[in-house]
């Protein structure tokens, strides 16, 4: 969010301070789910940053659309905001402005509601404004005698629209991929029987293969700087890729996950 706000307004990231979510202090941005925060809140942040830039330029007496001129360099100098372009300098003294109840002198605001259309009786319509796409390949090694499966490598190619921060995008993809590995090979919750982390096994550091991420940036014009979402997509193609790889290795298509060793062994014997 700070990266988006910084570029929209035109100041360095270090000039921003984040107010953490709090229903008394921050607006309703919905929930952190459905891979929506970068796309939805991110767009609102971009619009808020632009709105603040527009207001600052207006205060400096700049012509109407001058704020869109990215050749201006902005800087916070003490309690003043300074614009410079081609030897022209505008200065907005912020300290002289009246503060509101929160101590803010100027507020940029943005709102974004992704355009969708309700589905009709046949489920036809526009349920989402944008879609993430991805493909992953998995390489596995199966022990035919033990029924065990080891994932050797994952290559994950994800169309994220735009990677606002590639480190964090990769982190989401890798983390999701490992949850997908758990879904495929390890995790099955049995009420009353696996109510702790030694009977319910999630992937540990030794279960994880080398993961290579390829970020495809097919920009989404609706999103902030072209970004979509990446929270959930990392997980979704992993189990299918692993199951396909097991079939490729053994000739057995497993129809039930997790592919625990006893299940794969049984399927190999029944082949």
């Amino acid at each position: 969010m700070t990266q988006i706000a910084a570029d929209a307004l035109g100041l360095p990231m270090g000039d921003f301070r984040i107010v953490m979510g709090d229903t008394d202090r921050t607006a309703d941005a919905g929930k952190t789910s459905a891979s929506r925060q970068t796309f939805v809140s991110g767009k609102a942040v971009e619009l808020a940053g632009l709105d603040l830039r527009r207001k600052l330029f207006a205060l400096a007496g700049a012509p109407k659309n001058e704020y869109l001129d990215r050749r201006y360099a902005l800087a916070l100098e003490g309690a003043a905001l300074v614009f410079r372009k081609d030897g022209i300098t505008h200065r907005v003294p912020l300290a002289a402005l009246p503060a509101d109840a929160n101590g803010d002198v100027l507020l940029g605001e943005g709102t974004f509601d992704p355009p969708t259309l309700p589905l009709d009786e046949d489920g036809q319509g526009v349920p989402y404004a944008s879609y993430a796409f991805a493909a992953q390949i998995a390489e596995v090694e199966v022990d035919l005698e033990l029924g065990t499966t080891r994932v050797l490598a994952i290559v994950a190619a994800h169309d994220v629209g735009r990677a606002i921060n590639p480190i964090q995008v990769e982190g989401q993809i890798q983390g999701g991929t490992v949850q997908g590995l758990g879904l495929a090979l390890m995790e099955e919750y049995l009420p009353g029987r696996t109510e702790n982390l030694h009977d319910y096994l999630i992937p540990s550091i030794g279960d994880v293969p080398q993961m290579d991420c390829i970020l495809v940036e097919d920009a989404e014009p609706l999103g902030p700087y072209g970004a979509k979402g990446v929270g959930e997509p990392g997980l979704i193609p992993t189990a299918p890729a692993i199951l396909g790889a097991i079939e490729n290795a053994t000739g057995v298509r497993m129809q039930r996950v997790p592919v625990l060793p006893h299940r794969l062994r049984r399927a190999l014997l029944d082949k």
Binding site: R36, I137, V140
Partner: peptide
Amino acid sequence: KPLRRGVGIGCMWYGIGNTSLSIPP
């Protein structure tokens, strides 16, 4: 040896954000 390797591929798509209509007809 009892070891066999295989390679698989999986694709996905995913609608970003809340579904426009979460309750069916």
